[in-house]
Every structure is written in C-alpha cells, then in structure tokens.
Design a protein around this nucleic acid. Structure first.
Lengths: 350, 350
DNA sequence: TGGGTTAATTGAATCGATTCAATTGATTAT
DNA sequence: ATAATCAATTGAATCGATTCAATTAACCCA
C-alpha cells in the first residue's frame, strides 16, 4: 500500500511537505500552489489512501465511540443507533459495536474500550446490575460515557431519556377526555428507583389531579409477554363485579400493549369498542398492529444524536454551549392516536 | 497513559523484553519466569493498558469489520448484527458501523473502509442500485466483502442468505395439507433478478407440482404497507365471483402479512377462520400479533455469524475448511405454525 | 553589498508498539 | 582450556504518519 514516503520520493519533496499538503487545514505552515498541486497529483496517481490508524496513534485519540448494546433485537436500540450513527458521521466519528452479554457482567468490555483509546461510550438499555459494576470502571478510565434510555441510570451519569412522565400524563388526559374513568396502568418492574416507577407515579399523579384516585391501579408486566398476559387475564375476568372492569389500559411499552390487545381478543373483549389500550414507544409495528395502536412516540433517533453530541461536547469545547439548550433527560414525547382507543362502551359512569 | 517504555524503565529491562512478556503467545523467543513475573507485576502496578492502535499500525491490519447498514430500523438487520457481533467478539474482532444513506450513493464509504484498513465488510440489505456502484470499488480495494440477505447480490459476490425458496415451498405444502387450494403469493418487487422473484418462482413450482396451477397468482406488495394494503383490498373484494376469493395468502414478509391480516379484518373477513395468512422472517412481533402469525423463521443470527466467519476465512486459512460444510446461500428456514392459519372455512372445493 | 523579513521547505524527533538480528553469559562437549 | 551450544535478553530498525524547529531561498529596503 502507498505511503506518504512513496509520494515524497516520487514528487521529489520531503515527507513533511506531503503531510502538510494532505492536511490542508493547517494554518501556520503554508505550501506553494505549485508544490501542492504536484503532491496532489502524485498522490492521486499512486492511489494513496491515508492510514487513519497511524494518524490515531500520534494524536492518541481514536475518533471512535463505543456503543454498548445488550438486547440488540429491541427496536429502540437500533433507532438510537441510527441517530447516533448519523451524528457521529457528520463529525467524522465512528461507532464501534460492543456487545454486552445479558447475564454475565464481563468487565473486559471496559478494558477493550481503553485499549482502543475510544473517545466515548454510549450505553443503551443497560441493565442496572451490569452498570453498577461497570460504571465506576468507566469513570476511572476517564472515557466519557452517556447512558441512554436506561431504567436505572447510575448515580452521577449523564442520562439521555424522553420525558416519559409527560407522555403518560398526556395519554391519561386523552383517555379521560374520551370519557374513561377506570384506567389501569401496566408498568415494567415495581422497583422504586426505576424510570418505570417514575412513569407509574406520573400516572398516579394525573389520576389524582383529575379526581380519579379511587379508580387508580398499577400492575407490573415486567416488559415481557408472559407476565403481561397473565395480569391482563386476571384483570379482565373479574367475575364478581363486571362494573369494576377497566375501560382503558395504559401500557409502558408497545409490546405489552400488543399482548393486552390480543389477550382481550381471546376473552372476546373487543378493542377499542369495549376496551381502549395504549402503548409506548411508537415502534414500527404499532402502526401495523391489528388494530393500529394509539401510543406515545419517543424520539429515539434524537436520543442517539444527543448522546453523541454530549460525548463530543465533553472534549470539544465549542459544542458545549449548544448542548445546554437541551434538557437531556426530558426529551419531548408525542401522543399518537390510532385505533386502539375510543370512547368507552358504557358511557361515562358519573 | 502508561507505555511499555515506562514498564521497561521501572522493571529495569528492555522494551523488547516487555513486549515479549506481554504477548505470551510468542514461541521462538522465551523469557525466564523470573523476568516475566517482574514485568507482569510492574505492568499491573503502573496500570498499563496496551494500545491497540499502535499495534494495528505495525501489523497493518485492523481487527475490525465494517457493517454497512441502510435501513437500520428493520429487525433482520439488528438480528444479523447481533450474530455478527458474537462471532466477531469470540475471534477478537470488532464491528464498526457504517451508515449508508438510503438514497444518495456515497462512495466515500469505501474510502473510509480503506483508510481504516478494515479487515472485511458486511453489507446487509444493500439496495441493488447502491451495490452496483460500490461493489466494484470494494473489490478493487482488496477488502473482502460479504453481502447478507440482499435482494439482488452483485455478480460474483459472496452471499449469505436463507433458503427462502424452501421456506415458501414448506408453507404452500402446509396450507395445501390443511385443505387450501386458492393460495395467493404476495411477493416484494417484480424484478426478475431478485430473491423475491426466486421465492415467487418457488411458489409457482410448488403449486404446479401439487396440481394447483389454475389457482396460482402472484402479487407484489413492494415490502411496504400501502401497496400491500391496496392489492389486498382489490384481491379480497371480487364482487363478481366470491368463489374465486383466495382462502390463503402467503406473504414474503411478516410486515406485509400483518397488513394483510388487518386489511382483511377491516373488510370483515376473519383470520384464520375465513382466510389464512402467513408471513416470513419470524420477527419478534409475529408472535405478538393478533392473531399470532404463522411464518417462516429465517436464521438471521446465524447469517451474521457465517458472514463474519467467511470474512475471517478469506484471510485466515484454518477457518476455511470448516466453512465449506455450509452452503452460505441456502441456510435452513423453519416453518413456525401459529394462529393465523387454519383449515379453509368452505372445505376443500374438489 | 549587506542586514532584515518573509515565504517555502525540510530534517529529525515522536507516537507506542513489534520483531529481527546480535549480544551476553552460562553450561556442556572435546 | 577452548570451542560449541543454548537460553535469555537487548539494541535498533520498523510501521505510517504528525509536527516542531531549523534551514534555505527569495525579496525588500537602506
């Protein structure tokens, strides 16, 4: 492969000159147009490709960001990744994938980031247990890190997330406006320090503000199909008091909402005529579902973009001011009304 | 940051010795246990981390594979990525993400791969138009490349894909066994040199072999919701001859199958009682759909794994023999029966 | 003609490693 | 006692660049 030495020899100039020509940006040193052209020509002629590795050795920094991913099959992950890639790309940075096994917390992942002299790390959907172990090590390494859409971000970490509480509030308000009163919230896990808990709290607060505290009920689907199906089934078959059956169910994820809709269908409860169901995320399938899901859109691509920006800002000073405008943990969500919600069948019971 | 020179100075040995100790694998040169231990201790003491960049400069190879992705939000992409990451990881390779814009074919992507001295490139779901431009450049660069799950892989390229034709066959046979005769196939695009066309051909062949050529019909949904909905609607509302309405629709993707199911529902045609619908891919939502979709599972993770292996094999000789066992373009698919299919309502019409 | 500026170019050090060939020192064979 | 063998270690070259300080060449003015 062609090196700058080859160019220098062929063009009859020094390696230094070639280097200066190739990195036009340099201001202090200037090269005559004649030499510049000559070097450029021979470079093109020989088919020169600069070696980014060698370059990175000298600067000591790799223009590369690590992307830690654990459940790669979940849609938010890839949408965040997409946003991060775009932003990294336009700053001449790259994304390097680093897989984190679901179960075993392998701290070698931190070692690798150090060994490759990564400029930053993005951890998406990081399990709290893993982060408890890894985050201190990362801090110790001096590599800047942002945590994206995590259920329980480590103390002191930079966290990028949507304003989920606002999203929950808007869904509940929307349902109440439709005439619903008996609204149940299906959260993720019950742990108190999680985002899921914050959302549940937002649901409770909104219900209270609207004077519906006697109807409020929070269940936990753990984000998984099986437990969600189970709680939905027991919730909907309340043989004693049919009146008490909820007319709407707000879910903390689209996947759980889909399970709820399907389970209701199996119990001959029609959505949305007899039961309104809402999801969360606005994943691709929300629009394709049967019926299409009313849901809360999260700005996943934007989250990826901001994650990269905040990383670059921690080294690059000029990026910092711009970033301050955003509140990284409260990105706006948006209610997307589709066909899984409608006015309650039995009218408002008041 | 600590370098081997620091270790050498502190331990009172030469840089070469330190290097040899740190790369134990070396066989020709041996170091005494005493020195080895001394070096290891000081390395640990100083908190040394090897610089993979510097190492890569010398070997001239970056243990990194480029992953070209265009529609990052599609599930197969991430599942293949997941498989590729695992395989790369266990060979001490890494995945570097490179985004390719959907529309503009930017050949700088090839430049970048060269500049970073990537060891290989995986292109997933690469649009044919883009590949026509980029593939020759990649070949020219000498970087090995594999194309994964592409609709029209470039001539001469290594292609990793599932045995889709076999999948289509198994679905059709299954439906016929259930009693269906009027089975329609919804393909992607009609172009003749695509995989989609191969699948359609497999459908036609199977229908013919089973003596059902007078019922066969291929439509094109272009993988998108809107055209799929449109053709489904016109297909199902045949006011003149209700008898001619199909009893089963085989789709070339889960997403199209979901649209078909939903559209049928809107027309008050119940799935599976009055119409059986099958998908393709076994994406996550296939199991969550309403009703859960009968579909053909593609081994996406395996595809990712094999893509990496075949790249490593092109440089690493010992990997080659093992790879020959597989037929990269005919990975086994599997029929997954769920609840979107059933025996036809009006019994077999023969 | 000579001193002072400025513009253009270059020699050499450097980054953090790897790796070959050469050296040292100890042990064994003749 | 000398030569030969072998293990352990090291000096120096190398990879492909960047970058500072020094040099050369050209020009201007007195």
């Amino acid at each position: 492969m062609v090196t700058i030495t080859d160019i220098a020899t062929k063009a009859g100039v020094s390696r230094a000159t070639v280097s200066y020509v190739l990195n036009e940006r340099n201001t202090t040193v200037r090269i005559s147009d004649h030499t510049r052209q000559r070097v450029m020509e021979t470079a093109a002629e020989l088919g020169y490709r600069r070696n980014e590795l060698a370059r990175a050795v000298i600067t000591g920094k790799n223009r590369m960001l690590g992307f830690w991913v654990m459940h790669s099959n979940r849609e938010p992950v890839v949408r965040v990744l997409g946003g991060a890639m775009k932003e990294a790309d336009s700053n001449d940075y790259f994304i390097k994938m680093l897989g984190l096994d679901n179960d075993t917390v392998d701290s070698r992942i931190v070692e690798r980031c150090i060994e490759w002299r990564l400029s930053g790390i993005i951890a998406i959907h990081a399990p709290a247990a893993a982060m408890d172990v890894l985050y201190p090590k990362v801090v110790d390494s001096g590599i800047p890190m942002v945590v994206v859409d995590s259920q329980r971000p480590p103390q002191g970490s930079t966290h990028v997330a949507a304003n989920g509480a606002g999203g929950v509030r808007s869904v509940v308000e929307y349902l109440v406006k439709l005439g619903h009163r008996k609204i149940v919230f299906i959260a993720g896990e019950p742990d108190e320090d999680t985002i899921s808990h914050t959302w549940a709290q937002a649901y409770l607060n909104t219900m209270q503000e609207l004077g519906l505290q006697r109807y409020q009920k929070v269940l936990h689907g753990y984000w998984l199909p099986e437990p969600t199906e189970h709680i939905t089934r027991t919730l909907l078959q309340q043989p004693t008091q049919v009146e008490e059956r909820p007319t709407a169910i707000v879910c903390a994820s689209d996947n759980m909402a889909m399970v709820v809709v399907r389970t209701a269908g199996q119990m001959s409860i029609r959505v949305p005529q007899e039961l309104s169901v809402t999801g969360f995320d606005d994943s691709t399938v929300a629009a394709l579902y049967n019926p299409p899901l009313t849901t809360v859109a999260q700005p996943f691509e934007e989250m990826g973009r901001l994650a990269v920006r905040s990383l670059l800002a921690s080294t690059d000073v000029e990026q910092q001011s711009e970033l301050l405008e955003y509140s990284l943990e409260q990105l706006p969500t948006q209610l997307v009304v589709r066909q899984s919600t409608a006015a309650p069948f039995t009218g408002p019971d008041k």
